[in-house]
């Protein structure tokens, strides 16, 4: 089994490396570079050449990539396009804030999603299932910006419980933007629950229809024991991978929510950076998000291996 874990790990590293290459090449391929963005209309002739030399943009791409990659590995992302701020500093607090958001959504969402999914699966086609499934479909169809906007409408404008816009800076202690955090988290949680719940429901239905559950029934095992000891362990195994994917989605889909709530996280930083053509920042944030995604998937893979006896065993019979 250690061999399989090592292989997964190596593949993960390859993927992260590929991502870095794609990002770098992508940025290279775009017309213009940091200098054209800074100088804008003045980007030509001597001024352009001087800028490029100052920023090190005149060295060959491969060398720049190597330098950048080496930096990334050490956590050193360089400076933002304006040359004003260290990216690492900019990013630091926002990573914390985005992680808080994701963690909040996960902590509430995952247990809730699993519970609802299991209940819906067990009560298939009866009222709990219809209620939860319909709710899930509705939640999935509402875009995040819509949900966010509606929540602001209700809680900020009509009820006035929370201020509508976050004005706190990124490095403020979390308590200061707590109300916005709650709303933003709620939106994310809702959407996440919808996706995960449907998947778990399908998994539970399949497990309950399986032959080993039928056998357990005919062995005289009481219903609830069958559910918890026989069906759920099998039904929830694939959930690990789904949860990993959801975490990945949280990291990506959080962009819109952060913009609506003006939440000081990575997502908003990304959108701002793109608008300002601050490509080094874009590169850095993308790498962080992608690396986290790969890391989470790796953990999920390893967990799957550890918990699923069928994947583990080398003694498995040849078919």
């Amino acid at each position: 089994m250690l061999g399989m874990i090592a292989r997964r790990f190596a593949l993960g590293l390859v993927t992260v490396w590929l991502v870095s290459v794609i990002i770098f090449l992508g940025v290279e391929a775009l017309p213009g570079d940091a200098c054209t963005a800074i100088l804008e209309r003045d980007a030509h002739g001597e001024a352009l050449a001087a800028c490029r030399e100052a920023m090190g943009l005149d060295t060959p791409a491969l060398a720049r990539y190597a330098e950048w990659a080496a930096g990334v590995v050490q956590g050193e992302f360089g400076m933002s396009a304006g040359g004003q701020e260290s990216i690492a500093q900019m990013v630091g607090y926002r990573v914390r804030n985005s992680l808080l958001l994701a963690a909040g959504a996960l902590a509430v969402g995952i247990p809730l999603a699993i519970t609802l999914g299991v209940v819906a699966g067990l009560a298939r086609d009866r009222w709990p299932d219809l209620l939860f499934s319909t709710g899930a479909i509705l939640a999935m169809t509402i875009p995040e910006f819509v949900a966010a906007t509606v929540l602001i409408l209700v809680f900020a404008i009509w009820l006035g419980w929370v201020p509508a816009i976050v004005l706190t800076p990124a490095d403020a202690p979390p308590l200061e933007f707590f109300p916005e955090f709650i709303l933003a988290s709620t939106v994310l949680t809702m959407l996440m629950i919808a996706h995960v719940m449907r998947m778990i429901r399908a998994s539970v239905i399949e497990a309950m229809a399986s032959e080993y559950v039928q056998m357990a029934t005919l062995k005289g095992v009481p219903y609830w024991r069958i559910v918890f000891r026989h069906a759920l362990p099998n039904a929830l195994l694939p959930a690990i991978n789904v949860i990993a994917l959801t975490v990945a989605w949280l990291l990506g889909g959080v962009v819109v929510v952060e913009v609506v709530f003006n939440y000081p996280g990575l997502g908003r930083l990304l959108v701002d950076a793109i608008s300002e053509r601050d490509l080094p920042v874009v590169q850095a944030v993308t790498m962080i998000v992608a690396a986290t995604y790969v890391g989470v998937n790796l953990v999920a893979d390893i967990l799957s291996l550890a918990l699923n006896p069928r994947l583990r065993s080398h003694r498995a019979r040849q078919a």
Partner: peptide
């Protein structure tokens, strides 16, 4: 149900067709 569960697997047992599928894979 409780009576039924007592008899099934107890005084009246079943040997299924495909034991490979009938045994719980995670136990």
């Amino acid at each position: 149900q409780p009576e039924l569960a007592r008899i099934r697997g107890g005084k009246l047992g079943l040997i299924p067709q495909n034991s490979g599928q009938a045994l719980t894979p995670t136990q």
